[in-house]
Design a protein around this nucleic acid. Sequence first.
DNA 1: TAGGCCATCTGGTCCT
DNA 2: AGGACCAGATGGCCTA
Length: 238
Amino acid sequence: MSPKTDCSPGAQVNSEGDQYYGVSDDEGSASSLGTGSLPSSPNPSLTRLQAGGCPADEGPGRAPPPECPQKKQKARRGRTKAKSEVVLTKQKRNRRMKANDRERNRMHNLNSALDALRSVLPTFPDDAKLTKIETLRFAHNYIWALTETLRMADHSLLSVGQQELAREPFRQPPSTACLLELTSPGSISPCEWDSLYSPFSQAGSLSPTDSLEEGRSYQAADTAACPRHSPHAFPEFV
DNA sequence: TAGGCCATCTGGTCCT
DNA sequence: AGGACCAGATGGCCTA
């Protein structure tokens, strides 16, 4: 489904930080070359170096260009400004590459966690893979639905207010209720309650229970568990 | 073709 | 100083 596998052409160019930087060598060409993703913020060190006159194109293992006599002279004397600039540039580049690597790993970890979460969420096998945001919202609503199920189970176990419960239109746990709804065309499918579809998680305010204490708790719960408004999207989690 | 989703890069900020 | 986290930018892929 996703363009991810081979995605990120930028990644193809860049993912091999070494290669990418190695190819482009100097930071100047690097920024313009590898990353189309150097949008508004060109590397400051880059501009500085370029403006400095002598292109810092001494990449890894490359000798400094002969057209910089001043720097060359200074270089002979020992620790020179030019030399240190090159070193600094290299250090910067190294740090950047390492940071990119870490960031990539971090995002991969994040995606792995999301995948793990997806695998726990009930969906039909033929369902399209949930997007990230859908996964999070669905998970939130799912947890809430399960919580409600437990709460109602406790209620009945304690035989507290059983009579009131008996009068409630939806006495089954959310999953059951939803499944029933799905199989009864005459009734309103919980999944059709757009207004109830994750109003919480979409808003980010996440307090499902706030809106609970209206007779529709279960409907809300059912709805919450329906990831994509599609009646088929509701899983058989029982 | 526009819009959604995604991966990656990057610079900034905060924390250890 | 270095790492983690974050948000903005960019460009590719896919689908309606």
